[in-house]
Simulated assay, not measured.
Amino acid sequence: MPELNLTHELVLLAYDDQGVNRLGTPNLDQGLGGALLLELALAGRVEVTDGRLAVADPTPTGQPLLDEALVRIRTESRPRRPQDWITRLGRGLREQVLDELVAAGVLRREAGRVLGVFPRTRFPSRTGAEPVVETEARQRMRTAVTTDGPVDPRTAALIGLTRALDLHRKVFRDLPKEQVARRIAEIGAGDWASAATRRAVQETQMAIITATSTAAIIATTTVS
């Protein structure tokens, strides 16, 4: 199985056992764009300077999705905010990530129709049970939230990502809300990465919150 990253883990957490996206398309797309930036930040490839995203190291990571994003950021004509990049990178990314999970044998693609009329594609687990990689991600996050020990950078970033998307309420729904909120705040403020990386992660998380909130307002206004 190829190396999976935060984009794959986010998709697995967002889709239920029936293979349906429960996070919502706009939110998941924004989250996936943010997940790419978080991975690049953790790898030391990007940083935030004066509110703009910049490439700190152009060396390829070896992961196609990350390297494609890195090239786009490096060759952009002018510096842009993290919020701009999560929107740009999120377009069409969900389909790419799902394709990779299907190719890796984690999910399967099921094409069908709702009420025999409207086309719908679902992405349930290949085995019918929760994918092992999703279970592992959930266990890492749960251990981090229920203990006071050190948290590895990728798990800390994944927890922050789910918090920015309000997905943590579903991931930790069986745990006391006060405990989860306190521990997530501690993890966010913890010394789990370099100052530059933490700043890039925090900026990306705030950008996700802003982008998803804006999308929700636009959707509400359009419907009204």
Rank of each mutant, 00 (worst) to 15 (best):
Q30I: 02
L115D: 09
L65S: 13
S213R: 12
D29C: 08
E95L: 12
T143N: 13
I86A: 01
G31H: 02
L12P: 01
L165D: 00
R126C: 03
T7C: 15
S213D: 03
M1P: 14
I86E: 05
T75H: 10
H168V: 06
G92H: 00
E68Y: 10
P2L: 11
F123G: 02
R45P: 05
G33M: 00
E186I: 06
E39M: 02
W192M: 12
V102W: 02
R113Q: 14
P2S: 13
D16S: 14
R108H: 15
D67K: 11
P124T: 12
Q18I: 10
R120D: 10
A69V: 10
P82D: 01
G19H: 04
A195I: 13
V114G: 04
I73A: 08
A56N: 06
L36D: 04
T221Y: 11
D148T: 07
G62V: 15
L38K: 01
P58N: 09
T127D: 11
R72N: 13
L101M: 07
N21P: 02
E130G: 03
R163W: 04
T87S: 07
E134C: 11
T25M: 05
R78D: 11
L13Y: 10
E203P: 03
P26H: 01
R138H: 12
I159S: 06
T214Q: 09
T143R: 14
L175V: 03
D174P: 00
S125V: 05
L70C: 13
L28V: 07
F118I: 13
A54S: 07
V97R: 01
Q96G: 06
G90W: 03
V55C: 07
T162A: 09
V180I: 10
P26A: 04
A144N: 00
D174C: 05
E134V: 15
A164W: 02
T197V: 14
D67G: 13
E186K: 09
P153V: 05
R169N: 07
I159D: 00
T143I: 14
N5Q: 15
Q83L: 10
D29E: 14
V180K: 12
G34A: 07
Q30H: 14
S77C: 08
I86P: 03
T75P: 01
T49P: 03
R198T: 11
I208H: 05
V133M: 06
L161P: 01
R198S: 08
G92E: 04
V55W: 00
R22E: 13
G112C: 07
V55N: 02
R126D: 06
Y15W: 12
A14N: 10
T214L: 08
R94M: 05
T121A: 04
M206I: 12
P176V: 10
L6A: 10
D50L: 07
P176F: 12
R154M: 10
A189N: 12
L23G: 00
R199Y: 11
V133A: 09
G51Y: 04
G160I: 01
T135L: 11
D166C: 01
L42I: 08
A157D: 10
A196V: 15
G34W: 01
A211I: 03
P119Y: 04
A137E: 05
D174V: 07
A164Y: 00
L66C: 14
V132A: 15
P131R: 08
V46R: 07
A189Q: 12
L165C: 04
A181D: 11
V133P: 05
E76G: 09
V201T: 12
P26Q: 00
L115I: 08
V223D: 09
L36K: 05
